[in-house]
Simulated scan of single mutants.
Amino acid sequence: MDAVQAVAEPRRREILRLVWDTELSAGEIADRFDVTFGAVSQHLKVLRDTGLVTLRQDGKKRFYRADREGMGPLADYLRAMWATKLDTLAELAEAAERADGAEGNAS
């Protein structure tokens, strides 16, 4: 599997987003999903095997971080995709606030 195929899976993209700017343990990552630890572990293995995350072991704990340099142009694509989603979310929130304000003024 190549890196593009790896990020085609939504949970793997979410894992990458979680470890984009910070290092998290496998348990911390798994706690954010509604699937088993084993399922998250498999996703982490795919991400590691495709060079999208780095692994640091400290005793029995495993810590993951996105390997943005190793991703090459894929890093720019993911960053742009997440920024677009955040912009859309912000626009929807502002529209909802405006609609609530308009309803409040009408009463």
Rank of each mutant, 00 (worst) to 15 (best):
D2V: 03
Q5R: 13
A8I: 01
A8L: 12
E9S: 03
E9P: 00
E9H: 09
P10W: 08
R12T: 02
R12V: 04
R12I: 03
R12F: 07
R13Q: 15
L16Y: 11
L16C: 09
L16P: 02
R17E: 14
V19N: 14
D21P: 09
L24W: 07
S25F: 04
A26S: 03
A26M: 07
E28N: 05
D31H: 12
D31S: 13
R32E: 03
D34K: 15
T36N: 12
T36F: 11
F37Y: 15
A39D: 12
V40N: 06
H43S: 15
L44M: 08
L44Y: 08
K45C: 02
V46L: 07
V46M: 07
L47Q: 08
D49C: 14
L52F: 12
L55H: 07
R56S: 05
Q57G: 04
Q57C: 06
D58E: 15
G59Y: 11
K60F: 07
K61S: 10
K61R: 15
K61L: 11
R62H: 11
Y64Q: 08
R65C: 09
R65P: 05
A66D: 08
D67S: 13
D67E: 10
D67I: 07
D67M: 11
R68A: 00
E69W: 06
G70A: 11
G70F: 06
M71F: 01
M71C: 03
P73W: 01
A75C: 07
Y77F: 13
L78K: 07
L78T: 02
A80P: 00
M81E: 02
M81G: 00
W82T: 01
W82H: 00
A83R: 14
T84C: 04
T84R: 12
K85Q: 14
A90G: 02
E91G: 06
E91K: 15
A93H: 11
A96M: 11
A96E: 14
A96P: 02
A102W: 13
A106G: 00
S107R: 06
S107M: 01
